[in-house]
């Protein structure tokens, strides 16, 4: 029996949690609104700052899309592309981010990252959906296989069908989950004329120079350097010059 006092404590705790969440949501939304107002007044640097703050506290697809727009108007191509890629990652159904990326890449003559088929499939839905699908379908299959025996239910064709379906869904989600994982290693060069170094050292020979917004895939890390593979070649860049779509 739960005592009255315990019940009161539970209610207070719940209310506190809700208030805290609301406060957080309110601050993120406030920055979003401030950023929108600044953008409409063409104060793009301030808009960028507001949207970035909102995205830092509450990352959301709409926030990243607007951040990308503000960065683009402010002349920062790489940051804009990164923000739109993050928006597309969180909400693949939203065509705005995708169109903006196409527009930006065409305008700036940049290439899109080369995606494997797993990664292309993974981009159809948000990454978390694939994870929940895989998790849910697998455990549902396990439960459907185990529970009838435990609960002394009669085994039926429906249960077998459910198990087959769930296992099928699980197997189908394996490549997409793999694609989500490999896609998290994709990033973009932030600064223009970033040297792609032959070795992870400060005085390394530059293999080539990368344009801001050029995509790369992280293969390894060493100290302050990342080994990335671009479309043409492989080399090392400094951590500060490269940003991943999914920050670690």
């Amino acid at each position: 029996m739960i005592s009255l006092r315990s019940l009161q404590l539970l209610i207070c705790l719940g209310a506190l949690l809700i208030c805290r969440n609301d406060a957080g949501a309110n601050s993120g939304t406030n920055f979003f609104k401030l950023g929108t107002a600044a953008y409409e007044q063409k104060d793009f640097p301030h808009a960028t700052k507001m949207f970035a703050t909102s995205a830092a506290s509450e990352p959301a697809a709409g926030t990243f899309q607007n951040l990308g727009n503000a960065e683009w108007q402010d002349g920062r191509t790489a940051e804009a592309i990164l923000a739109w890629e993050r928006a597309a990652c969180l909400k693949p159904f939203d065509r705005n981010a995708e169109n903006n990326l196409k527009f930006a890449r065409e305008s700036a003559q940049l290439e899109a990252p080369e995606l494997t088929w797993c990664e292309i499939a993974a981009s159809w839905l948000p990454a978390n959906v694939w994870a929940w699908l895989a998790c849910g379908s697998f455990w549902l299959a396990v439960a459907t296989m185990m529970l009838p025996g435990v609960l002394r239910w009669r085994r039926s064709a429906t249960q077998q069908a459910i198990v087959a379906l769930c296992l099928g869904v699980f197997l189908l989600t394996l490549p997409t989950n793999y694609g989500s994982w490999t896609r998290s290693q994709i990033g973009f060069v932030l600064k223009r004329e970033t040297p792609l170094r032959l070795t992870p050292t400060a005085e390394a020979e530059a293999v080539t120079k990368l344009a801001a917004g050029e995509p790369g895939r992280v293969l390894r890390e060493r100290g302050n350097y990342l080994l990335i593979r671009t479309r043409r070649t492989t080399g090392w860049v400094e951590r500060d010059d490269f940003a991943l779509i999914t920050p670690r």
Binding site: A25, A61, Q65, L90, P126, W181
Partner: peptide, 16 residues
């Protein structure tokens, strides 16, 4: 511009 920020979600996928 997007009119609303949308649902909050982490950039780091659950798999990681």
């Amino acid at each position: 511009l997007a009119t609303t920020p949308g649902r909050t979600a982490s950039l780091v996928p659950l798999q990681l």
